[in-house]
Amino acid sequence: MLFPPKPFQALCAAYASWYLWDFTSPFRGGWKVSWFRRLKWYQYCASYNSFKCIKEDLPALKAASSSGPLMFGCHPHGVMCASVFHTFGFDHSESIQSCLPNVTFRVMTIKATFFVPLWREFTQCLGFIDASRSSASEAFKKGHSVAIVPGGAAEALLGEHNSPALILNKRKGFCKLAIQSEIEGLVPCFSFGENEMFDHISTKSPIVNIPRKIMKNVAGVTMPLLYNIVPKRRPLRMVVGKPILLKDLEKTTEDEKIVELHTLYVEELKALYNRHKDDMGYGELNIVQ
C-alpha cells in the first residue's frame, strides 16, 4: 500500500485545518473544556501521590478572586509540575477549582508545548496558555486568573530533595506583569513533594551541561538526567498562601512597585514554607539566584 487509506487522509486533513485555524489560541488567552477537566481519571492520578491542596486562607482567596483576577506563583518547578496540573489544570475534589467554582484558571507553560500535535489540544483543554506577557495579558483582560512557575526550566535542573533550591531573586518579570495588568493580587504557592518524585543524576560535566544549556536557550526547555522515569509515590502537597493585594502597595512609581511587590512576595513565600516545612520533613529553603 503506497498511500494511507482515505479515511486516515481525511482525518489528517481535518486536524491540519483545525491546527491552522486554532494555532494562535494559546497565545491569545487560550480556552478550556470544563468536562474534560472533570474526568475521573484525574482523581486517580491525584491518589497516586495522595495529592492535597492546602488553602491557608480560603476566605481571603474567595474575597480577592471575586474582586478581580489573581496570579498564582508556584514553586518549585520540578520535573513534571505535577502539583500545578492537580491544583489549576484538573478539576477534582482536591483542586482549587472545587473551592473557587466561579474562577476561570489559565496555566502558563513553554511555547514549545503548542507546536506538538494532540498534546497542544490536551493542554489547552486543561486551560494552558503560552508563557508570554501578551497571552497572560489577554487572559487577565478576560477576567481569568493565571498560574505561573517563575523558576522555569532552569529551576527544573536543580531538584534538591527536602531542602529545595529556587530561582527567584532575579525573576521580577511576573511582578511587573501583575502590576501592568492591574490584577487584584499575587498568591504564593509551594509544592512539598514535587522534587521528591524523581532522583536527579548530579553532574557538572560539560559534555552534558553544554548541550543541555543550548537546548534550554533554543527550545526554552531542558530535561534533567534522572535515575527513575516513573515518578515515585511520594506525598504531594500544594500549599496556597494568602493573596498579596496590589492595592495595598505603598510605592508610587512602577519600578518601585515591582521591587516592593517582589520583596513582599519572597517574604510571604518564605513564611509560608517555614510554617509547613516541619510537618513535611523539610529543611531550609534556598534561593540560589
Rank of each mutant, 00 (worst) to 15 (best):
P7M: 10
L11Y: 09
A14L: 15
A16W: 06
W21S: 04
D22F: 12
F23Q: 09
P26W: 08
F27A: 14
G30M: 05
K32A: 12
Y42S: 06
Y48H: 12
F51E: 10
K52G: 00
I54A: 04
L58K: 01
L58S: 00
A63E: 14
S65P: 01
S67C: 13
G68W: 00
P69G: 04
L70Q: 07
C74E: 08
G78I: 03
M80D: 14
F85Y: 15
F85M: 11
G89T: 02
F90P: 01
S95D: 02
N102W: 04
F105V: 11
R106I: 03
M108E: 08
A112G: 02
R120D: 12
G127N: 07
F128E: 05
D130C: 15
S132N: 11
K142V: 00
G143S: 11
H144G: 02
V146T: 01
A147G: 07
A147K: 04
V149G: 02
H161V: 07
L166A: 09
L168H: 10
N169P: 00
I179C: 02
Q180L: 14
G193R: 03
S202Y: 13
I207K: 12
P211Y: 02
R212I: 05
A219K: 05
M223P: 00
P224N: 09
P235K: 09
R237W: 05
K242Q: 14
T253D: 05
E256A: 15
I258T: 13
E267I: 09
L269R: 05
K270T: 15
H276Y: 12
D278I: 08
D278H: 11
D279H: 08
M280Q: 15
G283H: 00
N286R: 15
